[in-house]
Write a protein that binds this DNA or RNA. Structure first.
Length: 204
DNA sequence: CCAGGGATCCGG
DNA sequence: CGGATCCCTGGG
């Protein structure tokens, strides 16, 4: 008999702490988005931390603009941006007002609402069983599957549309660390955190 | 490996 | 305004 884990919505206080601990703690949490009367849900398996103070890869580095201003709010908001003319990327704002810190959600493991995610992402059924591993295994892919776009930037993620829940208990030794992917500045910072051996990572 | 694709930012 | 850049992805 397995005891069902409590799955409780994360509160503001979870996000309003230092960037790196929050980033590591986000691994294993569940991203939930209300989609009509259904819910899409995926367990976060890969994240990257960004800190505008000294990290030149962060959008908040050195400037506050219309696009990134939400990054300078208190933790607990979504920051979504559009890039390469095709893809959205979804970040969780962390820390205290004025800090400019956020965590990019790079990959999730689909948990529920999977058929809807497949429809959003491919506009067809899965071709084969392996394709599920291509559904949400990247920041642009998961935004597509969850139908998250710029209109969701600034969403309070302690509300009822998009939020995170407590999810799975993850031990420290289950979390891997590496350099971040796809950046050209501040490349040395080991600020990518992921669930080791998870098949839904953006890079295996 | 490479290029599409368009928002965004900066400098003039 | 032009030009460079971009926290990516899919298709060779």
């Amino acid at each position: 008999m397995s005891k069902k884990l409590p799955n409780i919505k994360l509160k503001k206080s979870f996000y309003r702490k230092d960037l790196l601990p929050v980033a590591r703690n986000l691994v294993g949490k569940i991203l939930v988005k209300k989609h009509g009367k259904n819910f899409l849900a995926g367990m976060i398996v890969e994240v990257e931390a960004y800190n505008g103070d000294f990290d030149q890869a962060a959008h908040s580095y050195g400037r506050k603009t219309k696009r990134n201003e939400i990054m300078f709010e208190d933790g607990g908001y979504l920051y979504v941006y559009f890039t390469y003319g095709a893809h959205h990327c979804c970040n969780v704002v962390t820390g205290k007002k004025g800090q400019g810190t956020a965590v990019l959600i790079r990959a999730v493991e689909p948990v529920s609402g999977i058929e809807l995610m497949v429809k959003n992402r491919f506009d067809r059924k899965l071709k084969n069983e392996k394709e599920i591993f291509n559904l949400t295994s990247g920041p642009g892919k998961l935004c597509r599957a969850f139908a998250i776009d710029k209109s969701h930037s600034g969403t309070d993620i302690t509300g009822n549309e998009i939020f995170l829940t407590s999810g799975k208990r993850v031990q420290k030794d289950e979390i891997g660390t590496s350099k971040r992917i796809g950046i050209t500045k501040s490349v040395g910072l080991p600020w990518r955190f992921y669930l080791k051996n998870n098949p839904y990572l953006s890079r295996k």
